[in-house]
Simulated scan of single mutants.
Amino acid sequence: MTKPYVRSDVAAFLAAGQASGALAINELPVAEARAAIRAMGQAMDLPPEPLAVVRDMACGSIPLRLYDARAARETGPLILFFHGGGFVFGDLDSHDSFCRFVAQRCDLPVLAVDYRLAPEHPFPAFAQDAEEVARWVAAGPDVLGHAPTGIVTCGDSAGGHMAILVAQRLGARPAQRPVLAQWAIYPFLGAGDDWPSFRDFGEGYMLTRAAMDWFDALCGKPEGEARYNLLLGPVPPTPLLIQTAALDPLRDPARHYADMARAAGARVVQIEAEGMIHGYVNMRAALSSAQQDVESLLAAGMALLAD
């Protein structure tokens, strides 16, 4: 492989990480790894924006958080957000700043989901929680304060997996309101590691192959399960936005899924962040150029909804 293009802020970030000598997350006990990821996220993300509505609620035992730039809303789409973290890390606070920004910039309510995590809750816990919340939202519960016209599924990494998974599940068995679009940010597809991007970027570019193997082991990695390997699932014609990072090992499976969605008749918008690494939506303070990638993502997502 020829030497890839790396943005200057990304190159400086990677060099600082290599110089730190810190243990990789997969070399730590899960509790310590979660604490390290939490501290890193707080240091690298932008401060949260104030919003008219930031309200915690629940779907059964699944914690949720509603964000809205408006104090009251009649109706319209709702963005259902699933956080990344390899199905092992993340919660309502890890992506709080990002969810606030999405709600403000898109002028749509955002409902974040605190799904169960591995290893305490291995597969299929996350898949069950994602579908349960989506169907609950589609039923228009009063606690939301308005009845959504439909759902936009959204998420990064493992959350991008769930954004696609929910579109697949509700495409195969429709809920009371439709999935209007799926916004998948550098999604994990669960499609194995036999891809050029895994070989090219599986070491030295933030997300490593060793970490992904660790996530798989903790989650259970069920073989041949369509709720884990999304390339085996029923690809719906739901409009799809996929944003990949050029230096991400997960890049190539996501590109392939975009091709599958086109073949299934979906309108597909595919954006690639050149010179960027995995995880940038939570690193907008550490990587100044990531903010433009997020802006591009949301502009494309809103255009896809308007089509």
Rank of each mutant, 00 (worst) to 15 (best):
G21E: 07
R267E: 12
F98W: 10
A184K: 12
A35M: 12
R173V: 14
K221Q: 11
V137W: 04
A261S: 14
V152K: 06
G275R: 05
Y280V: 12
L108R: 13
R169D: 04
D114H: 02
D307C: 13
I164C: 12
A266S: 13
Q182L: 03
F126A: 15
F87L: 11
D114G: 07
P234R: 14
A303C: 05
E274F: 03
D200C: 03
L241P: 09
A210S: 12
V102Y: 03
L64N: 11
Q18F: 10
Q292N: 13
S289T: 15
Q128G: 08
R34G: 02
R34L: 13
V113K: 11
L64F: 06
F87D: 00
L240G: 01
G279Q: 11
A158M: 04
D252N: 09
L117C: 14
A16V: 03
D93S: 13
R177S: 01
V10I: 13
Q176E: 15
A19D: 13
W183A: 08
V179T: 11
G60C: 11
V235M: 06
D68S: 14
Q128K: 07
A210Y: 00
P178G: 08
A12Q: 11
F201I: 08
A11S: 13
L241R: 01
A15F: 06
G265D: 08
E272Y: 10
A36H: 03
A300N: 13
M212A: 10
C154E: 07
L218T: 02
D142S: 06
P236Y: 05
Q292F: 05
F98H: 13
G76C: 00
M260K: 15
E295W: 01
S157W: 11
G265E: 02
P222E: 01
L230F: 09
A31I: 09
G220W: 00
T244F: 02
S197L: 02
A39N: 10
H278C: 01
N26G: 04
R209C: 01
W214R: 00
V6K: 11
